[in-house]
């Protein structure tokens, strides 16, 4: 089975801190990681490959340094990697990103399955997976936690608010994968050494030949109109002292606010 896993490089949110003066993120020195949910998509792909053979290709759209995330994916066991990067792709929202990634998947050719993490932790939009699927004209299921190959189709278990659903879906198809699905295996030493030297092709405007109207800022219907710090909590109260006294005071205050 030929599987494409779309990954995104994001700042490690566990290590991001807030500048208390400006209420902005201190991003300097914050390590970049593979979006955690994309790790689950990658592991799902590797398990399918272990069981049924085939090839796992990871692709990532982003700045040149996103290559690092692709090398990491190779060290975990992906077979090939392609970077999608071009200044002209900059400023893309989820619409333009979906379009651009779909061109890269088409260029890869014969693909049975396209996997995504359920969402990226920096944007939390969860839109690119279904978007790419539509541009590729393939069916999509979101929030997949398990997949089984059943002849020509796939049997997919997807998480819902209060349980799960089991779907039978034609190949090729796209799935977005939840954390419950698995845990990404550790990298292997040999693959890690090989990943450092691996040739990672970079596909840009010339390689993908996109419709100029549909990429980057021009292809993005949404625009950021303003960015501001979240409202700070007013009337914050810090209590200290004996537990019993603190709690008595807390309960009284919660009642005053009509929340208890």
């Amino acid at each position: 089975m030929n599987i494409v896993v779309c990954i995104k490089q994001v700042p490690d949110s566990d290590k991001v801190t807030i500048d208390r003066e400006t209420n902005r993120l201190n991003r300097a020195g914050v390590p970049s990681i593979i979006n955690p949910f994309d790790e689950n998509a990658l592991e799902m792909a590797l398990q399918l490959k272990d069981a049924h053979g085939g090839k796992v290709t990871v692709i990532s759209m982003g700045p040149p340094q996103a290559e690092e995330a692709l090398r990491t994916a190779l060290s975990h066991g992906a077979d090939e990697a392609v970077l999608i990067s071009d200044r002209k792709f900059g400023g893309a929202d989820t619409w333009a990103t979906s379009y651009t990634i779909s061109l890269a998947v088409k260029k890869l050719g014969d693909v049975d399955l396209v996997l995504f993490g359920k969402q990226a932790i920096d944007g939390d939009t969860a839109q690119v997976g279904p978007g790419v699927a539509h541009f590729l004209d393939i069916p999509a299921l979101t929030y997949a936690k398990a997949v089984e190959v059943t002849g020509e189709t796939l049997k997919v278990t997807k998480v819902t608010e209060d349980g799960y659903e089991v779907w039978d879906i034609d190949k090729p198809c796209a799935l977005t994968v939840v954390k419950e699905a698995n845990q990404l295996r550790m990298p292997s030493l040999k693959k890690k050494m090989a990943a450092k030297k691996a040739e990672i092709p970079c596909w840009g405007f010339n390689e993908l030949q996109p419709d100029e109207e549909k990429i980057g800022l021009a292809g993005s219907p949404t625009k950021v109109s303003k960015v501001f710090a979240p409202p700070v909590k007013l009337n914050k109260e810090i209590l200290s002292g004996e537990p019993a006294e603190m709690i008595t005071e807390l309960i009284q205050k919660l009642k005053e606010r009509n929340v208890l």
């Binding site: 295996r185 550790m186 990298p187 292997s188 030493l189 693959k191």
Partner: peptide, 8 residues
Amino acid sequence: KELAQMDL
């Protein structure tokens, strides 16, 4: 087992 898969 995981260390094995890691080539270690």
